[in-house]
Design a protein around this nucleic acid. Structure first.
Lengths: 197, 197
DNA sequence: GTCTATACCTAGATAGAC
DNA sequence: GTCTATCTAGGTATAGAC
């Protein structure tokens, strides 16, 4: 169980690749870009990974496993009421934007393209899973009488999903507001609206 | 003032290019893709346009001129109160998603990349202009006492901007809801929130 | 684990015939 | 206005030496 130098070099390269994929997009990042940033030559990358696709695959699947584990824990939790669960899901999502910005950005920008390959079909399944999570949270809130029941559920889900994840395009850690403060403002608008009174 | 065949062929090719740029992204669309879709060979495209960049340039600048003309008209209008102006701006934006889906999608997906070229600097200016429009609408609403004054204006602006334009990723004309119905649901959530009571 | 060298492919763009 | 033919640059990936 000691540190494995091989593993850490892999992770280092993956982190470099993730940063570049997030900044420039997957297609627009060349293996030479990644190698340059790592201080090696492009051919050397293929000692660690068998393709550029393998890199983004590992980056995204690792991240999603963690994120959906958190959603599952919230859904399964017995000491949160429906409203608290919804709030917690929003908070966890903004935390993901803070802690895993590159991964979220890659997913936002490149998932549609990657989905055209069979090997990334799991991204589509995760999409469905995410939809199920939010629809469940919303429906439970409606059933408990704490959320409006006159809204289109599907539209409301998209509204929430979009406003959360799109924040990765402008959120910068260390900025004027922490991710928690942003999440709370978002929740305030989402729950109470911007209308006065 | 008769029909100009040269002009209409140009427009036809631009529409084909816009559709492909919107579907696959600007970088991921090759000039051969465009030529194939138009039923000609790639070299022939250069009789009409001097580069792929010129095509997307013409597509985006034409669209933005129209959209910002509408925003300016709303801001200048004297028979709308602050709340009505805000609502009108949201409606006009969703109408743009309906009427100019390709252009909006291209802007959403590729503006960040295009902005790295000097020739597309005007996209950055349009960004600033858009921000000014929404901040003005919000501030006028707050001053008139119809909007909450306890929210971060900048965050609220981003919230509105993001929820509107990201809809282009899932909205399809002829779907279950018209763009006007979607705009009204969005306004309902934005103004009143999803909380019950 | 990295380098040298290179194969192979696809991209944007051009020149001149028709 | 379109075609044929082609140039050049830059991309992913590989093979084998060090």
């Amino acid at each position: 169980m000691t540190a494995q130098p091989t593993e850490s070099r892999r992770d280092e390269l993956l982190a470099i690749a993730a940063r570049l994929f997030a900044e420039k997009g997957f297609r627009n990042t060349t293996v030479r870009d990644i190698a340059d940033a790592a201080g090696i030559l492009s051919g050397s990358l293929y000692h660690h990974f068998d393709s550029k696709e393998s890199m983004v695959d590992e980056i995204l699947s690792t991240f999603q496993e963690e994120l959906f584990g958190q959603y599952d824990a919230i859904l399964a939790s017995s000491d949160l009421d429906p409203l608290a669960k919804l709030e917690q899901a929003v908070l966890v999502s903004f935390e993901a934007i803070d802690k895993h910005r590159d991964e979220v950005a890659i997913y936002q920008n490149d998932a549609a393209y990657l989905l055209t390959f069979e090997r990334f079909a799991y991204l589509g399944e995760r999409n469905q899973q995410s939809r199920a999570v939010w629809l469940t949270l919303l429906q439970n809130g409606i059933d408990a009488g704490v959320l409006r029941d006159d809204l289109d559920l599907e539209l409301t889900y998209r509204f929430i999903r979009d406003t959360i994840w799109v924040a990765v395009s402008w959120y910068r850690p260390g900025g004027r507001r922490t991710h928690t403060e942003i999440a709370k403002q978002y929740l305030s608008i989402l729950l109470e609206g911007i209308h006065h009174g």
